[in-house]
């Protein structure tokens, strides 16, 4: 559970930093008048973005718990012994492409370039579909070499399925944002929503890289392993 506690500690640091700016040592019983020392909106972030960030914090913990469960359930000697379906490297690349495409779309929307924004959004959608299809192929490849009673394989299926479900939910939102971007009078209006998609995809990419690193042998596996054994 050390990885989970580290994750919680990181969230706690963010919360503590924010709380330290909220004058928690003030004496409200001595003060009257509309306090203006603090903005009534102390979180300098649009509401929707903050809502997504809070949601992603919970989603991140969910996957950290899965990683913790993996390290507790799967004996260390068989960690990363899963046959590495090569296609997983390709799907990882596709997810990176999707994330980059969304950032491109966000930039294009900010400059009022509707075609560029739509190109980025469509590219992200295609890359995401490719990612999910590739994961399904990886499941089939794995099914040929491992059984459900194989704990590492079961974790692979569980982790990737939950990850794909989250991505699927995001895909619905991406479709709505794409449609709105196509219809919006000024594409700049869609830029915040595209930014939310980019944030969501970035988070799911980061989560996938952690899952990839714990399930298979990757250049960053040692880092994750070190964190798990802290």
């Amino acid at each position: 559970m050390s990885l989970v506690l580290l994750y919680l500690a990181a969230l706690g640091l963010v919360a503590a930093r924010w709380l330290s700016r909220q004058r928690l040592a003030s004496k409200p019983w001595l003060e009257a008048g509309p306090t203006l020392a603090l903005s009534p909106r102390p979180v300098a972030m649009p509401t929707a973005r903050l809502g997504l960030a809070v949601f992603l914090a919970a989603v991140g913990l969910l996957f950290m718990l899965l990683v913790a469960a993996y390290t507790m359930r799967v004996p260390p000697e068989i960690w990363r012994r899963l046959p590495d379906p090569r296609i997983v490297w390709l799907t990882t690349g596709l997810l990176i492409v999707a994330s980059l495409a969304l950032h491109g779309a966000k930039g294009a929307a900010a400059h009022g370039e509707r075609d560029g924004a739509l190109l980025g959004l469509t590219g992200a959608a295609i890359a995401t579909l490719g990612f999910i299809a590739g994961q399904v192929l990886a499941w089939r490849q794995l099914a040929d070499t491992a059984s459900v009673s194989d704990a590492a394989a079961a974790f692979f299926i569980l982790m990737t399925a939950l990850h794909a479900l989250h991505l699927g939910g995001g895909f619905v939102a991406l479709g709505i944002v794409t449609a709105r971007s196509a219809r919006a009078g000024a594409v700049e209006d869609a830029q915040p929503a595209i930014g939310l998609c980019a944030l969501y995809w970035d988070a799911l990419l980061a989560i996938w890289l952690v899952l990839f690193g714990i399930l298979f042998r990757t250049p960053w596996t040692g880092w994750i392993e070190a964190l798990c054994r802290t």
Partner: peptide, 24 residues
Amino acid sequence: FTMGGVNYVVTVLQARAPGMTLMR
């Protein structure tokens, strides 16, 4: 609950009336 929970947290953080600091 997660849907509701995100609402409660963000409402407390973002939708307070003018003058309603955390310590009020």
